[in-house]
């Protein structure tokens, strides 16, 4: 009986931390599944406007992004809003080629479902957006979505 008491007074037994890594790995996989890698770094500042009537993008693989905003590096690209396609600063005239490339990268059945997402900073002027829209019309890329963040309904 005395021996039994002694073994109890030795303090708390060490916590088994082996399963902790399992839990963390589970977290890891969860985040890997719900997130997606940043495909290209942005050279421009974008703060999208807010809207309440938003819809989610359905198929992310069928979306091509046109980013519009003021460049981070104003010595290199100036202060005027610029367009970024993939990972380079481009001109409005490059959009036609960009859309062609996006189409060529998809199988034929998916091409009509291609959507163009205009992700523009809320402070840019409409002039550049209008030019983009005109260019998209010319190449028949008519499905368009203005990327916004969600605001609660009033």
């Amino acid at each position: 009986m005395a021996r039994f008491k002694k073994s109890k007074s030795e303090g708390t037994p060490g916590l088994n931390t082996g399963s902790m890594s399992d839990i963390v790995f589970m977290f890891l996989f969860f985040f890997m599944v719900i997130t997606n890698m940043r495909e290209s770094s942005l050279y421009i500042k974008i703060k999208v406007p807010q809207a309440s009537e938003v819809q989610k993008l359905e198929k992310k693989s069928l979306v091509s992004y046109i980013n519009v905003g003021v460049p981070n590096d104003e010595h290199k690209y100036g202060r005027e809003p610029r367009i970024q396609l993939n990972d380079q600063i481009s001109e409005v005239s490059d959009i036609a080629e960009f859309i062609e490339n996006e189409r060529a990268a998809r199988i034929e059945a998916e091409r009509p479902m291609l959507t163009t997402s205009i992700k523009a900073d809320k402070d840019v002027r409409m002039g550049i957006i209008v030019d983009i829209k005109q260019e998209l019309r010319n190449v028949n890329a008519l499905k368009l979505i203005y990327t916004t963040s969600r605001r609660g309904k009033e």
Binding site: T35, A51, L57, K60, L142, K143, L144
Partner: peptide
């Protein structure tokens, strides 16, 4: 390195050329 998918927006259809 990853970003949570937050892409939402207002869908529109442009008129044909």
């Amino acid at each position: 390195v990853s970003s949570i998918n937050t892409d939402m927006g207002i869908p529109r259809r442009l008129p044909p050329p």
